[in-house]
Amino acid sequence: MGSKIILLVEDNPDDRILTVRALKQHNISNEIKEVKDGQEVLDYLFGEGEYAGRDITIQPQIILLDLKLPRVDGLEVLQRIRADSRTRRLPVVILTSSNEQKDRISSYDLGANSYVRKPVDFNEFIEAARQLGMYWLMLNEAPDD
């Protein structure tokens, strides 16, 4: 079923490194595509701007999306993803930095599939993936533990 790219949208380099490390540490060996701002995600998903000409039939399996992003913020990115038929069905997991933020987000209906606390609480991530029916994402690569 196509690629097994995890798209990580995060502007803070510390959080990017820690997230990638956490995923790797838990033996997730999927390709992790890192993007740094909202405009870049959209360009990547729709094959525009610096990603012009990208084969957009290849889309990530899951998007980890920070909300506070430069240029186009996370909420708008999410709305654009949900508004476009090509990306409507992509699973999006919101990265939150506190309970407060999580409460704030859950009060809107944004069409996010799940929430994970930064810098990826691995248990929360597994739970989210399980809810999204993406167990296989981990299972294929992860050795039994």
Binding site: D14, D15, S97, S98, E100, Q101, K118
Partner: peptide, 22 residues
């Protein structure tokens, strides 16, 4: 203020904690 506290103050904290753990 609360929002920025929850967001901005946490980022460096995460780095301190995360990289110490690493």
């Amino acid at each position: 203020f609360s929002y920025s506290v929850s967001h901005d103050l946490r980022a460096p904290l995460r780095a301190i904690d995360g990289f110490s753990l690493a």
